[in-house]
Each structure stands twice: as structure tokens, then as C-alpha cells.
């Protein structure tokens, strides 16, 4: 019979892999914050290189993504895969993972949008699997 220790270790490894993924995203030129936000707008994991109001960014990302998703539905575009906010000083990108969780990136103006988007698109399927197994445990 499995003890309680095994699931705990699995969760721990999954969490450290999620942290490693965020660290990897932070290593991209121009990326200043990488966060995972839950369905209530709370930041569950974050890596950043500047002071950031995590509550504010979490809530805003969920609000913006929700608004963009509704806009997409209105025009018959169905599911929203990525929201990009282009701002005067940089970009905010948000992608859904699973069960309302989102991956959000904050970048400086000099970030290579293609590089960031490529990493996001490639990372999301893995994060989906990690979250699916994490949430099942």
C-alpha cells in the first residue's frame, strides 16, 4: 500500500519543476516577471526581478483575460489562447493553463515578442500536464 509520503514527494517535484519553468521564462531577454495565477486572481507562483504588487497583477490578469475571452466569443473566435497587452513600457502576456490557472508574463519593451510567445506556446502543454497531474493528486 502506498504511504502518504509518495504523493507528497510527487507534488514537491512538480512544484519545483513549475518553479524551474518560471525561472527559465525569466531568463528570456526582457522578461521581468513570470507568474501563475489561480482562477480567483491569486498568484500561486512567481519569479520577478522588480517589486510588483502580486495581488494587483493576479487580479488584473484574470480580469483582462476574462474580458478578452468574452470579446473573442462575441466575434465567434471561440477559445482564447493568448492575450497580449502592449503598453508604453512593455508587454503583459497571459495564457490559460488548466482549471482557471493562468500563466502571466511581464516584459520590458525590448523583449522579443516572437521569442516570448514561442516559449509560452511551447511551455503551456507541459504546464497543462503538470497541473493536471498535480490537481489529481
Amino acid at each position: 500500500m502506498n504511504s502518504n509520503v509518495k504523493p507528497f514527494e510527487i507534488r514537491k517535484t512538480q512544484v519545483s519543476e513549475i518553479d524551474q519553468i518560471l525561472r527559465n521564462l525569466m531568463s528570456i531577454q526582457g522578461v521581468s516577471a513570470a507568474a501563475i495565477v489561480d482562477n480567483e486572481g491569486l498568484v500561486t507562483h512567481i519569479h520577478r526581478d522588480f517589486e510588483i504588487n502580486t495581488d494587483a497583477i493576479g487580479a488584473s490578469v484574470q480580469v483582462v483575460f476574462g474580458a478578452a475571452s468574452r470579446a473573442a466569443l462575441h466575434v465567434g473566435h471561440h477559445v482564447t489562447n493568448l492575450v497580449i497587452c502592449e503598453n508604453a513600457e512593455g508587454f503583459i502576456l497571459a495564457m490559460p493553463i488548466d482549471a482557471g490557472f493562468m500563466l502571466a508574463l511581464v516584459t520590458e519593451r525590448d523583449a522579443l515578442l516572437g521569442r516570448v510567445r514561442f516559449e509560452l506556446k511551447e511551455t503551456i502543454p507541459v504546464l497543462k500536464k503538470l497541473f493536471a497531474s498535480y490537481l489529481l493528486k
Binding site: Q14, E17, I21, E122, T123, V126, K129, L130, S133
Partner: peptide, 18 residues
Amino acid sequence: TDIVNVSEDIRIKRGRFI
């Protein structure tokens, strides 16, 4: 089922390619 190691492997290979 070993998604953690698969994830790490994908990340490393993507890093090498980039």
C-alpha cells in the same frame, strides 16, 4: 507518466535549439 522529467527534457532541448 513521468511528466516532471519529460518537462525538464523538453525545456533543455528547447534551450539547446534556441
